[in-house]
Design a protein around this nucleic acid. Structure first.
Lengths: 346, 346
DNA sequence: GAAAATTCTTGGAGCGCTCCAATTATTCGC
DNA sequence: GCGAATAATTGGAGCGCTCCAAGAATTTTC
């Protein structure tokens, strides 16, 4: 690849003049400019390489989005939640004229990705992963953690998951439900993990901070109704896993309410119910979490905990762009009761 | 910000050794390594700046996606079509461990964005925009144009829009329709542009190559049935413009079939029909284009021209990643007849 | 037509890093 | 304990560019 120097040599001018031709053409005499442009064309010079400029100038004008867990970036676009979050971030980038980089990282490359991504800041899709946070810190770029709180010196933005969880369970116990199955989020790729009653401690200890908080809310609300979360099956599935619904119905025959940690999982359950001819909410009630656009369009429409996901993504990106002192934002939630919940059968 | 040299000075070692501590720690004696690490911590050195490396090494390990027209990147995520295209590209990036950069560019910054984006190649969301293509060429990075053909020396991947358009119109004329309204894609932001019968030449000349091809298909299929496209109103709207449906019904009262260039626009029409109590397909038939996932879930389900959008995005990204000689790919289409079309009323 | 003012052009310094050949320190073998 | 082998460290060159002070060329002014 030819360089500024090569072009300069070919045109009989200095590197500096060639640079001016490309960056401040008004500074160079028209005839010279044309000579330089001709030389550049002849050599196939494609304009100043951004690498060189970068070293001198600094900013990448881009913010990075790193998916939660070790999810592939495609999964982020595919998931209703991820999509809305990215949409919000994209809105903020549009307003700022910045690029939004979806940064790829498998389990063992995400640390390196943080170190090397060509961005001015990061959105870490929900994760309290200590290693990730500390490498983000080390890099000394602004970053925001979505959906968990990593202390006062780190930007974070999360939903009041506890409150949402309480609201869901109170709604269901209020309707008379006593037997629940909980559909939790598996943090890595792979098939469903089933924790039957009595062996649910492991589930409670695992996964994202997000799950802890929501599970905590579930546990407390169940306790209010004299129930114990330890008696309920907990099933961890990857959101979007099409088998999740089947596993739930296979394993949790006597649950009258299936409580999912995400709309996407709840929708899978709805699909499977339809397939099996199980009536929702007649035979079983189903709840989601997130209030994605999809949740309003299912049959029946999903009872869910709504939050402003797009707003969350936008705010996350704005926090990076603004580069202000760290803040910890907690977004409100609201229970949206729709058609997928009713009194238990009998 | 401290540099390798600063750290080296503080630790009493050379720059090279500090570099080794971070990149090939096994090369440096443990005690020294610790001394260097301590110095780095003390100075708040965040590890080697990727900028420096970049200059030496080259690849960005990222591909850029530039939205069609001057659409903001948020619009790409929001639109069903854009989302699937990006999803496909993300799949290919996942497989290759690359970053997917959604590159921002307004009308007057897109050229500069192409020049300066920190990527190894581009996907140009459908656009035959001469300036853009030539600046992409100039930069000498591999790039792929989606949805139009820019000649044998440029990668492109497009759908057989003409065939799809023919199929739609033949289906509708076969059902007995004679009065159509055409919903075309406005390339810039802004309200609907209405071209009433007799003034449609302008519409035929404008917009994306994509529209030309599809409009050409419509025109020919109409001609087969003894009809003239010049007699049909053509309305250009921005996909996702929620008013599109209203404009169509306000302006095209006697059309028995509304033919949209994208599912998204067709869905808007469906929504508006519902709002006005106009029965689809009883009173008016509606067709989409693209076969997005959404099109199967509308009420009634949409008759549309299906194509493998995700596959298209994936292939586009793969073409860049592979960096092989230019190819021009034409993807097949298939008419999918669903519930939104029927014989005209009366 | 010479000095002053203006416009253009030059090339060195430096951005932070990696690479590598050369140098220095350490360990090994007998 | 000494030379050879091995391991660890160094620092210069260079990646492609921008910036800028200085110098050269041209134009203006009186």
């Amino acid at each position: 690849m030819p360089t500024l120097d090569d072009v300069g040599r070919a045109a009989g001018v200095s590197r500096g003049t060639v640079s001016n031709v490309f960056n401040r053409p008004e500074l160079v005499r028209p005839e010279l400019r044309e000579r330089v442009e001709a030389a550049a064309r002849a050599l196939g010079y494609g304009g100043p390489d951004p690498r060189g400029r970068l070293l001198k100038e600094g900013k990448f004008n881009a913010i990075g989005f790193m998916p939660p867990g070790a999810y592939p970036i495609a999964e982020v676009i595919r998931s209703p939640y991820g999509r809305e979050l990215v949409l919000g971030a994209a809105q903020a980038c549009d307003a700022a004229g910045a690029t939004l980089s979806l940064v790829n990282g498998t389990d063992d490359t995400r640390i390196a990705s943080i170190r090397e991504a060509l961005v001015d800041g990061f959105i870490l899709g929900h994760s309290a992963d200590i290693d990730l946070v500390s490498s983000a810190k080390r890099r000394r770029l602004p970053f925001v953690i979505v959906e968990s709180d990593a202390g006062p010196d780190v930007n974070s933005i999360r939903t009041d998951g506890r409150k949402g969880a309480l609201a869901v369970i109170r709604h269901l116990t209020g309707l008379g439900h006593r037997n629940f199955a909980i559909l939790s989020i598996r943090r890595t790729a792979g098939p469903a993990i089933v924790h039957m009653p009595g062996e649910t401690e492991r589930a409670l200890a695992s996964g994202f901070a997000l799950d802890h908080e929501r599970l905590g809310g579930f546990a407390d609300a169940l306790a209010e109704a004299g129930l114990s979360i330890g008696r309920m099956p907990i099933i961890e599935t990857t959101p979007g896993d099409p088998d999740a619904g089947a596993v739930v119905f296979d394993q949790c025959g006597d649950a009258t309410a299936i409580v999912a940690m995400s709309d996407w999982q709840a929708i899978t359950v709805l699909d499977e119910a339809l397939r099996r001819g199980i009536h929702v909410p007649g035979t079983v009630s189903v709840t989601g979490f997130d209030g994605t656009a999809e949740s309003a369009r299912t049959t029946p429409p999903l009872t869910t905990v709504a939050q402003d996901i797009v707003g969350k993504g936008r705010m996350a990106a704005e926090m990076i762009l603004a580069n202000a002192p760290p803040r910890q934002v907690v977004m409100p939630v609201e229970l949206v009761v729709r058609g997928s919940t009713a009194r238990p059968h009998r």
